[in-house]
Write a protein that binds this DNA or RNA. Structure first.
Lengths: 337, 337
DNA sequence: GCACTTTGCACAACCGATTGTGCAGTCGAA
DNA sequence: TTCGACTGCACAATCGGTTGTGCAAAGTGC
């Protein structure tokens, strides 16, 4: 294992074996041989030799010389929800398609970890760094700029690099509309909806609150501060916040706008503990999870269009432009209507 | 962006600025300067200069010269369940602690993708490749051996490299015991339990079936082929399999041993469609998901001890031994008893 | 004052690829 | 026969670090 590194085959070895020069071997193996007028015969010889010996190029050496690593990086808050995990999977798939090597690091919504991961990736000379849901996107853009790497933001926008995000406001508006439609069907007298979860300081939560408020305003409903609880992205905090909220109430709100699956976990736990049924209340969740859908078929959900978002990201990677603070918004889809 | 790569600072630049030699700068910056008897004064000068200029070493170049990349890789079937995503997160965390750079690729349980990802990682000279849930672990070990990289398997065992897996048989036995205990409480006459999900050809499923059977045998219950449906790891297949299964029955089985959260999704969907309640049947799931726990508080679950498993993996990385086919089994925990 | 050790640093080779350039040999045309 | 063009390849510099080695200058002991 690590003890005795069995001397990997290099182009120098192949050159000796093929009785030619390293530069010729290199040209043949990286495809530039036609341009370099290497004869078909010699090329074939080298190619078959390389195959026979199981040669594979040292991409570190190549990267060093070419000053292009072929690596693209992504930082991610976490893996463990459908949204982020699907971002990671699509990112990898697209990278692979382009012959790029994708590397993903998860940074727990922690700005210090984000910077540290960015530092590492830049030290390995990633050509491009996609920061997803970064709490401090602009610093990361600056780091990328210094190192000459393309910076792109996803999920949360930054101001020093292009961003690809969901149209949170529209998604929230449509989710709220769907909730209100359901309530109209139930013909409840007091259509009080609680917005719960997220961080008031983050762009997405703000936009979703705006959409939530807008949809209600359009139906002549006022929205007060008490209707909105931004208790961070955490199940326990959501659960505690609900506990506190209900302390001064006698009945459930008629609906909840739950801002993320992790908050949904808290809401559901709290409902179960209180002996409520899932359908005692209309629920909409800004995020999509098939397991939640299975357990709660009437749950309304917002499914962000990760596939399109990643496509947009790669359009920027493929053709980086100068307009640096563009923000592309992708419409999400409402599930369950 | 990619257009004008702003010449990164190198040790040569710093050497000019500090009026010294590149080798001295290198020694100072990589910590070997005491050994090389560089004076404290010069070292300080170089260090502060490096900080001021925002120098960061080109790790590709370092890797090339040192013939150690500082990169460790992992391949993973998917990100989107709690088990695998937590594996990825712990892997990264442990790697970071050791100053290693972790890179994870997900390969969709597809042997060709697994090999391709391994090839890429080895071309970037990963020092170690952890293959998690690999469908073709031994080929990957061979590839690693050729390249002088340490190979370790996780979740599913291989025979040409050490493996760290869950004690599936014991976990299944204990889960089955827990299910039977619940049934005993209900005092059902026919304690029929259906085992559903997984692949009969994979080691884990086989072991879990063995544990399932053992636990039943110990209580004097026979297990027939009809009690076991290995319909792969997929929600739809599980749903269809249940459909077919119930076609020739009049009532639900009294319990189900569900082999993975993805199968659980199918089971739950099927129950909902059939108009059943979650508690019409005792359910145990070989996997853990907090959202599922929230929705179904009486669900029994097996939580694999990812933290310990990753620790074991790194013990092997830290001190690679010769006994190559060791298989370490880590006990999982039963949740919900 | 001299030999000897220690201190402090620079030189140059090297890791494994890529690529600009040069040159011998062949061929065709004048 | 001679010159130019083209073919086919090798040489050597280079990317940005690391590290074995050598050698002045300073310090020490007698």
């Amino acid at each position: 294992m690590l003890s005795e590194p069995p001397k990997r085959l290099t182009i120098y070895d192949l050159a000796r074996l093929a009785d030619t020069s390293p530069s010729t071997v290199s040209a043949v193996l990286n495809g530039s041989w036609q341009r370099r007028r290497i004869s078909q015969k010699l090329a074939d010889k080298i190619l078959s030799l390389a195959k026979a010996e199981g040669y594979s190029a040292n991409l570190q050496a190549r990267a060093l010389r070419r000053e292009r690593s072929g690596i693209i990086g992504m930082i991610l808050p976490l893996y463990d929800n459908r949204y982020f995990s699907s971002i990671a999977q699509h990112f990898e798939a697209q990278a692979r398609q382009r012959g790029l090597f994708a590397t993903v690091a998860c940074t727990n919504r922690n700005p210090e970890q984000e910077r540290e991961a960015a530092r590492m990736m830049l030290a390995y000379r990633v050509e491009c760094l996609v920061s997803t849901g970064a709490t401090d996107p602009d610093t990361i853009s600056e780091m990328c700029d210094e190192r000459g790497a393309t910076s792109i933001h996803m999920d949360l926008p930054g101001y020093k690099a292009p961003s690809v995000i969901s149209d949170n406001r529209e998604g929230a508006r449509r989710l709220t509309d769907a909730i209100l439609d359901r309530l109209a069907g139930q013909d409840t007298s007091e259509n009080d909806i609680l917005f719960i979860g997220g961080r008031r300081e983050d762009h997405n939560t703000r936009e979703r609150i705006a959409g939530f408020t807008q949809a209600r305003t359009q139906r002549g409903l006022a929205t007060s501060k008490a209707d909105i609880i931004t208790c961070d992205y955490a199940a326990n905090r959501t659960q505690n916040a609900l506990e506190a909220y209900m302390y001064q109430r006698t009945r459930l709100p008629s609906a909840m706008f739950v801002n993320s699956t992790i908050s949904l976990e808290g809401v559901v736990r709290w409902l179960q503990l209180g002996g409520y049924q899932l359908d005692d209340m209309v629920m909409g969740c800004f995020d999509w999870d098939p397991l939640a859908a299975a357990f709660h078929p009437s749950l309304l959900m917002v499914r962000q269009d990760v596939e399109v978002m990643i496509e947009r990201v790669f359009e920027i990677i493929d053709a980086p432009t100068v307009e640096t603070n563009r923000c592309i918004e992708v419409s999400p889809e409402i599930i369950g209507v």
